[in-house]
Write a protein that binds this DNA or RNA. Structure first.
Length: 166
DNA sequence: CCCTGATTCGC
DNA sequence: GCGAATCAGG
């Protein structure tokens, strides 16, 4: 079927149930299937697959169903999709740029401050003051304070401005 | 403040 | 029936 809008097909519902039972949140399910979070919830509700009838108090609204909220007066033009962990999830899910691939940094060369040499990575491990506080200790390029992996982390071209500049 | 869950209403 | 909007809670 080239065209048509197969809203909720059997497979779609299968995935929905699978992910739902898998313990994934509606946001994840929605992102995975490719629909909106409300769509997933709506379908689940329709299928009576709601995860427990939590908050019965929601019933209370039954009496407060006033339409006094006045909604047509709300110019919600910028319907920006919620952002946050979703970005992280999306990043590690598919559009991985590669920062995660930088992960495998040797932590077998950890050493204390005294053991730190001229060409040793000075990336702090753990929290300063902790018993096991130490440094990366990997081979650092000349002039650099960190090894290749940690240098990349230190020079994250992201966020506002540069972090660790100097 | 943001996010998640569930219900209700319009199409 | 589907999905957005809305409400409610953490």
């Amino acid at each position: 079927m080239p065209v048509l809008s197969p809203t909720w097909t059997n497979e779609r519902i299968e995935l929905l149930k699978q992910h739902f039972e898998a313990g994934l949140s509606c946001r994840e399910i929605a992102a995975d299937i490719g629909v909106s979070r409300n769509a997933v919830i709506g379908k689940l509700s329709r299928l009576n697959l709601t995860r427990g009838r939590s908050v019965d108090e929601r019933r209370l609204q039954d009496r407060n169903q006033d339409r006094n909220q006045n909604r047509p007066s709300a110019p919600r033009a910028p319907k920006a999709v919620p952002r946050l962990q979703f970005e992280m999830l999306a990043t590690i899910y598919g559009e991985a740029d590669g920062p995660v691939a930088t992960g495998p940094i040797d932590e077998a060369n950890r050493c204390s401050l005294m053991e730190l040499g001229e060409n040793r990575c000075r990336w702090p491990i753990s929290t300063p003051g902790a018993e096991d506080f130490c440094f990366c200790g990997n081979a650092a390029h000349d002039g650099q304070s960190y090894c290749a992996g940690h240098s990349r982390l230190a020079y994250r071209p992201n966020s506002r401005g540069r972090v660790m500049r100097g």
